[in-house]
Design a protein around this nucleic acid. Structure first.
Lengths: 225, 225
DNA sequence: CTATAACTTATTGTCTACAACTTCTCCCGA
DNA sequence: TCGGGAGAAGTTGTAGACAATAAGTTATAG
């Protein structure tokens, strides 16, 4: 240890549960585990190299976040969204987007706009390059930054959960429509950002309304049974 | 066992985790464990008569629901809400109430109104009797029934979590103001229900806006630091 | 040949035990 | 007398093993 700069302090002190949550979430959102597919505990222990207790705790977390589903004595599986579910998520997200704008526009701290600008740039680039995964990520970052404008932690957490559930669907649905949807979105998001930057709430709300997602849905809004 | 009506089938097949979640939630919402107070695993195991793993899994669930808080290597404690937190919860709840009305008014299934009528009756009775806990419960039932009008499961779950967090505060704050708040609320809730029954969305939204809670807050809305 | 019942297997649910870390206290030195 | 460090106690984090239940399979009877 001749170099004093060597960090003897270990910064990473996250528990195996947090690690497992992150890893399992990756498996789900990347589509490695597909919707409806069972997720066995033992399989995760061997894949993550940890024992079952932290895996089980992580699964409880992901059930709460709406990514996993428990069948009482039959284990756990990745949730498979019905069209009614998608409609639930979309409409709720829409309301929360609107709420975030009402809370956050005009923007108090200009620094909050930076992540949105970055996301728009990413969106433009990925859209031009036809990089769909990058586009999804950029879209995610944009909306999370938008929600962050509101400065409401609970809003942000709820929104992130909903967005993860949506991505659960997108990971498997790489059809032409969803790609087209993202490409169109690039311009719309730019317009929305411009409206937000202008500080005019009404204009921003109008841009949000026009930004309309849900184009990948095959049918009209469905009321659940 | 001469009576054949004796149920040999065990209907209750809920896991110890679910049981622990319910029990711990009761401890928190009843104010037996007060906000900010540490909740030790070993204490729960002896109190609930189960071992640590299910207790730990239950705690993960309650952390996700915003009732418990983890300090990385120092255990878990009941969340203590700041005024900024209360404002977060209130404003978000307000938006979700409004959303539920937009989704659910006019009411499709008249049966959905029944729980609301029951809740209003409970509210009136408990208010007259000065039974504060019963009033809190009735208020809870009313709002959950209102949210159920929307028919959005995710909305309902999110709202229930927020409401539990609020009750976390009320269990300790039995000051005069909060009682007064509930008493006033009885009439307002009646008016809101009447507006909903009329099927006029605008009227219902107006009644919701007038129904105004948050009277127990000592100060004006606070932006978190 | 089909259907039912018993058995086998695999997975989840739960418990006990061990390891690591944090904190409090006590002792020693300045 | 006050500050710092070492030790001890208690709590959380993790692992491995046991128990119970559900599903799949096979064999047997009709």
């Amino acid at each position: 240890m001749t170099l004093a700069s060597e960090p003897t302090v270990k910064i990473e002190q996250l528990s195996l549960v947090e690690l497992a949550v992150t890893k399992i979430k990756e498996l789900l959102l990347a589509g490695i585990v597909k919707p409806g597919e069972p997720v066995r505990e033992e399989w995760l222990t061997s894949r993550l190299g940890i024992s079952r207790p932290p895996v089980r705790e992580a699964m409880q977390v992901l059930v709460q976040q709406g990514l996993l589903e428990r069948l009482p004595r039959r284990g756990v599986r990745a949730v498979s969204l019905s069209e009614a579910d998608v409609w639930e998520i979309y409409s709720l997200r829409s309301v929360l987007d609107k709420f975030a704008l009402e809370l956050g526009v005009p923007v108090r701290d200009p620094a909050l706009l930076e992540p949105m600008r970055t996301a728009v740039a990413q969106m433009r680039a990925s859209s031009a390059a036809g990089d769909h995964p990058a586009n999804v990520l950029a879209n995610r970052n944009f909306h999370l930054a938008l929600i962050a404008l509101g400065g409401n932690k609970r809003l942000l957490q709820t929104y992130e959960n909903l967005m993860n559930q949506m991505q659960l669907l997108m990971s498997v649905n790489l059809s032409r429509e969803s790609v087209e949807h993202q490409e169109v979105g690039a311009e719309r998001h730019e317009a929305l950002l411009a409206a937000i930057e202008s500080g005019d709430l009404d204009q921003a709300l109008a841009a949000l309304a026009a930004h309309g997602e849900l184009r990948f849905l095959s049918t009209a809004p469905v009321q659940q049974a």
